[in-house]
């Protein structure tokens, strides 16, 4: 309890609030901005959960590069086109979706916080965040570097290939049609 508790709960509340704003805001530029804020809050949460590497990469990629891409795409569109119009039928049409959302959220939260936590774990882990994890940051960082570059190097290679394919894909989609030489 105390300040830490308040900060963490506040971060979670902000995370969910920004996610909702990113979904609900009519103006796409604002929606994208709040997506960026959500990613930033998520990065802070990662940092608190002793994952500074992930925090930095999440900040750079999802709160940085991806948001820049979104804004670049939006800037290529006419300003009037991007805004949905807030009419009544839109709100009514969203009621079933909203109800569905609440039902799914309640079921998932219920099951994950009760029966999921209660399962006996195979490797004898107890899945509760303790109040005191010895934050041996130095060795942790080395561990992550080792696990990325040595233990899971095959995954990293596949990821590099996936990014190559994504680059090829973007190149295909924006290739210029060659003029027919008559």
């Amino acid at each position: 309890m105390g300040l830490e508790f308040v900060v963490e709960v506040a971060l979670i509340v902000f995370l969910i609030m920004f996610a909702l704003l990113a979904v609900e805001l009519k103006k796409l530029a604002y929606a994208v901005a709040s997506l960026g804020l959500m990613s930033t809050v998520l990065s802070i949460i990662f940092y608190i959960l002793y994952a500074p590497y992930v925090a930095v990469i999440n900040l750079l990629v999802y709160a940085g590069a991806v948001i820049v891409l979104f804004l670049a795409v939006l800037s290529l569109m006419k300003p009037g086109e991007e805004e949905g119009k807030g009419k009544m039928y839109d709100i009514i049409a969203e009621i079933p979706g909203g109800v569905l959302f609440i039902i799914i959220a309640v079921i998932l939260v219920q099951i994950l916080t009760t029966s999921y936590i209660g399962i006996q774990f195979a490797y004898g882990k107890t899945l509760n965040l303790p109040s005191l994890i010895p934050p041996q940051m130095q060795s942790m960082l080395q561990n992550v570097a080792e696990s990325t570059w040595r233990v899971r190097v095959i995954d990293v290679l596949i990821q590099a290939m996936a990014l190559f394919v994504a680059g090829l894909g973007v190149a295909v989609l924006f290739r210029r049609e060659r003029r027919e030489k008559e």
């Binding site: 095959i154 995954d155 596949i158 996936a162 394919v165 994504a166 090829l168 894909g169 989609l173 049609e177």
Partner: peptide
């Protein structure tokens, strides 16, 4: 499972592009 997931994304990425190959 995680290797499968990354491979899955690699496969998916190339199939998305191939579907919209004739982008005109």
């Amino acid at each position: 499972l995680f290797t499968l997931f990354v491979a899955w994304e690699l496969m998916s990425l190339s199939s998305y592009t191939l579907v919209s190959f004739r982008k005109e």
